[in-house]
Computed example of a mutant assay.
Amino acid sequence: MAQLKQYIFFDFEMLCASKGLTFESMEAIRLGAVKYDLETRQITTFDQYIKPISNEPLSEFCKKLTGISDEDLIDAADFKEVLKEFLTWVGGIKKSQFFSWSSSDLTRLCLDASFHEISSSTIKKIQQRYVDFQAIFTQRVSKTNASVETALHLYGLTFVGEKHNPKWDAYNTLRIYLQFLNQPLASDLIMLKSFIFEEEEQYSVERVNTLLHHKLIDDFSSILGDRDTFPMKEASKLVKKTRNLVKKYNNILINRSGLFSQDILFLVKRLVDFHHTFISAYEEHRAYSSKIIILDDSERPLILKRR
C-alpha cells in the first residue's frame, strides 16, 4: 500500500427535476473537488462541467438549484473525458484518500463510469480508498444527517463560497473534516449535546463527567430499575432499549479529547458488557422457550450497583 499523501474531497451536481428522477437517470453535470496535501497543507481545486448523455434541456428546477445553464454544458466534455482529467489532477489514486458528503457521490461515480464503459479496476481503486464522511460525522458527532452548512454551524463556522457549487461543497466538507480531525474537544462537546445532553441548556467542561454519571444512572434505572425478573416479551424490549443506550454513550469510549474520566469510561464499558451479556442470556432463554428471564446479582450492571 502506497503512503497516504493527500485527501481528495469531491462532489457532483446532477440532473434533477421538481417531479423527481430515478437516481440512475440523474447523470453528473458538474464535478468539483479539492486536494489537500498532508505535508504542505496546500489546497488545490478542480471544477468542470460534464455533458450528459441526455439531450433534454435542463429543467427550470435544476437550473435554479444548481446554477447550471444549458449553455454551460454545450461545449463541456463528456463524463469519460472529465474523469480522465480529474484523475490526472489527482496525480495518483494509491496515495490518495477520497471523501464526499454522502455516499451518493460515489454511487454517481460508479453509475456514470459504467454508462461510459470506464475500466472497473480504476473505480474499484477509488472505492477501496473512499470514506463517506457524512456517515462518520452522523455516527460520531451530529446524530442526524446534517447538511454541510449545518455541520459547519456546529463548529461555529459559516459556508465559504457559492452554494450548490460542487467545488465549494467539497471545500467546505474538507473544512468540517479538519475540524473533526484537529479539534477533538470541540467534536466531543458537540457529540455530547447531540447524543446525551439534548435537554441541557448549558454545561461546562468541568461538570461534564458529573453530569454524565447522573445521566448514565438515570437512563439505566429508567429501563431496568431494581427488578431482576422479566417476562420474555418485556425482555425483548429491554434488549432494544439497552442497544439504544449503547448507541447513545458508545462515542465516549473513543475519548479522543481525553475529556472523559476513567470512572465514566468504566461505567460505559460496563453498560456495553451488560448489553452483550443480556443479549446472550435472552437468546439462550428464547431457545429453550422460557417464559421469564432472571438476572442474578453477577449479571446486574455495575452501573446500578454503584448508586
Score class of each variant (00 low, 15 high):
T107R: 15
R41I: 10
H153G: 13
L181F: 11
N255T: 10
R256L: 14
E234T: 15
Q97D: 11
I279T: 02
T173A: 13
W168C: 07
R306W: 11
M232A: 07
G67N: 09
E60Q: 13
M1R: 06
L267S: 09
I50K: 00
A113T: 00
L181R: 14
I293A: 10
L211K: 05
S290D: 12
S59V: 03
S147V: 05
E85K: 07
I292P: 09
V90D: 02
L189W: 06
E283A: 02
N250F: 14
R306K: 13
I136T: 15
Y203W: 07
N251I: 09
A33P: 05
E39M: 09
T22V: 10
F115P: 06
Q6E: 05
P231H: 13
T122Y: 14
K247C: 08
G161S: 04
I29K: 01
E24L: 15
K64I: 07
T44V: 09
L38Y: 07
D226G: 12
Q183S: 13
I252K: 09
V268I: 04
E71K: 11
S261Y: 04
R41D: 15
D47T: 01
L224K: 10
Y36E: 08
G92I: 03
K124T: 05
E149D: 13
A146N: 09
I136E: 12
K95R: 11
I217D: 06
L304P: 02
Q6P: 01
F195K: 09
N172M: 08
E117Q: 15
R140E: 12
K269T: 07
S96R: 02
Q128G: 15
S96M: 03
L211S: 03
A33L: 06
Q139T: 14
L109R: 11
K80D: 12
L15S: 08
F115W: 13
F98A: 07
I29Y: 00
H214G: 05
M14A: 13
S96D: 02
N182E: 14
D75W: 09
Y249R: 03
L302A: 02
L178I: 09
A77C: 15
I93F: 02
H214K: 10
S120A: 15
Q48A: 04
H153T: 12
S187W: 06
K84C: 11
F197D: 04
D70W: 12
F115I: 10
V141I: 14
F86K: 00
Q3G: 08
A76R: 00
Q262F: 03
L216V: 02
V34I: 11
Q48S: 05
I126Y: 04
F79I: 04
Y155T: 08
D219I: 02
R270H: 08
S147N: 05
P52V: 00
S204A: 04
R243Q: 09
R175F: 07
F12K: 03
I43N: 09
S100A: 14
D37Q: 05
I126H: 06
L178V: 08
E149P: 10
K291C: 12
L178E: 08
G67K: 08
F197M: 04
Q134K: 14
G258T: 09
Y177P: 07
S142P: 10
L216S: 00
K63V: 05
L87Y: 01
Q179P: 06
Y171G: 06
M26G: 12
F220N: 01
L265Y: 03
D75M: 13
L185D: 08
I123C: 07
K240N: 08
H285G: 11
H213E: 12
L152N: 06
S96K: 03
T122E: 14
M191K: 10
K5N: 07
F79Y: 10
Y171E: 11
V148K: 12
E117P: 10
